[in-house]
Design a protein around this nucleic acid. Structure first.
Length: 296
DNA sequence: CAAGACTCCTGACGGC
DNA sequence: TGCCGTCAGGAGTCTT
């Protein structure tokens, strides 16, 4: 699912294609994709706007416009963005025409396409990001997110590590995949209470998060089903390096123990029981089912 | 404040 | 073979 590395990859690839382009027409395949303002205003007010910047905040993509406003969006789980010829070859997996929720004709004759099978993704035209972005924590790749910050932030809460790291108001951009990967790299169990992590553990966690995200961006993100593709149509490559995610039943790459799948905070969670010892007193999580074959 | 349930939505898979 | 229940998951909302 698109997390920080996937959105960063998308933004980097779209930037040279979109900056300087003017939107000449907007088509909505499903008006529910527009969060605000009204679909009618969204369409009419975007026409004629030139895109002057393309960036990312957390898992949101932000297209800055020449009137100071921005087209902001979130891909949620199955959203995709691509720039293609105005008349595309009409059937390529997640970009199937019936899944196109919005498309934007550009002044160079191409079109920016937003497709999303499950209709969870959203677009908004805003004057300020505050209009649609909730309170969001620091960017994990920024210098502000370091060991001391992590130690203080973990101590200030009393929550299980996994749901805390998934909480966008704590740190921005992490999702289920990279939380599992970062926790494994840190040797921390997802059921550990945040305030019980040592100072050294917090330092390791901060560095592990940066390391995992940096490597994932270098690999253009992770793909394990038909959904995530870069705007250029390629799958990511980071799934080949997964340490634990989706690897339940397989040997840990570090110690050889069998990777286990748990459910923590209603999320599939993958751990190496040897590298990530279960904290004493942690409530026993529900027994997991086998990982569905959809992933892999 | 924390945490769990529930919702949205659809495709794919397991079970029978 | 084919129908049907279940599941995945980001994030908001509501309840405990």
């Amino acid at each position: 699912m698109p997390e920080l590395p996937e959105v960063e990859t998308i933004v980097r690839q779209l930037r040279p294609q979109l900056v300087g382009r003017t939107v000449t027409a907007v088509r909505l395949g499903w008006s529910g994709v527009v969060q605000r303002p009204s679909p009618a205003r969204f369409r009419s007010e975007l026409v004629g706007r030139r895109i002057v910047g393309v960036r990312r905040r957390a898992k949101y993509f932000v297209f800055e416009l020449d009137d100071g406003r921005a087209l902001v969006g979130h891909l949620r789980m199955t959203g995709r963005l691509a720039v293609e010829p105005a008349l595309p070859p009409s059937d390529t997996s997640a970009l199937r025409p019936e899944w196109v929720r919005a498309s934007f004709l550009l002044d160079d004759g191409r079109r920016l396409v937003f497709a999303d099978v499950r209709k969870f993704g959203r677009l908004a035209l805003v004057r300020s990001l505050d209009e649609v972005l909730p309170a969001i924590g620091p960017e994990p790749l920024s210098d502000a997110m370091d060991g001391p910050w992590m130690a203080a932030a973990l101590a200030a809460r009393r929550r299980l590590l996994k749901p805390l790291l998934l909480d966008q108001s704590f740190v921005a951009g992490l999702g289920n995949i990279y939380v599992d990967e970062a926790l494994h790299l840190s040797g921390l169990h997802p059921l550990r209470a945040s305030h019980r992590v040592s100072r050294a553990g917090a330092e390791t966690l901060a560095q592990s998060i940066k390391s995992v995200l940096t490597r994932a961006i270098a690999a253009e993100g992770s793909s394990f089903d038909d959904f995530y593709r870069t705007p250029e149509g390629r799958p990511g490559r980071y799934q080949d390096g997964f340490l634990v995610y989706g690897r339940d039943g397989q040997p840990c790459r570090r110690c050889g123990a069998t990777i286990v799948r748990l459910v923590v905070g209603q999320r599939g969670t993958h751990v190496c029981p040897r590298c990530q010892p279960r904290p004493r007193g942690a409530t026993r999580p529900r027994t997991p089912r086998a990982t569905p074959a959809t992933r892999r």
